[in-house]
């Protein structure tokens, strides 16, 4: 049985609703609804490997600031966002921290490090 999946393309303001048809093995057999070439490749990639940058904050210890802003260095699977953020809740950043310092390595097994996006003073 062929299956259909829908993906909204974010490549431009058009926001095309792209329909992907998949065969039994999950292979994309047809792409429709996109209005440009980039839309097709975006939709296939977004279906196969939907990734996002996880951004947020971690609590601090021994700083005048309550929080330190962080991000995943590169995008991670979107299904890992919630669990990733939960794992970061246990972290306490201690000063001094410089922008780009690794706060947690290999976030929930993604192989991606979480880095500070600002400095943390005393």
């Amino acid at each position: 049985m062929p299956k259909e999946e829908k993906v909204i393309c974010v490549g431009c303001p058009l926001g095309c609703e792209v329909e992907l048809t998949l065969d039994d093995k999950g292979k994309v057999t047809e792409v429709k609804g996109n209005q440009c070439k980039e839309g097709e490749s975006y939709a296939i990639e977004e279906y196969k490997n939907p990734v996002r940058v996880l951004c947020g904050t971690v609590l601090t210890q021994g700083s005048s600031r309550a929080l330190l802003a962080i991000r995943s260095k590169t995008p991670i699977l979107k299904t890992k966002l919630v669990g990733g953020n939960k794992a970061l809740a246990k972290v306490r950043a201690k000063p001094p921290v410089k922008m780009g310092d690794v706060i947690m390595s290999n976030l929930v097994g993604t192989g991606v490090d979480v880095v500070a996006t600002s400095d943390l003073p005393d």
Binding site: I8, V10, C12, P13, L14, G15, R52, K78, L81
Partner: peptide
Amino acid sequence: IRNEVQCVHD
């Protein structure tokens, strides 16, 4: 549109 998809639909 990227915020609609990545912040709401996701």
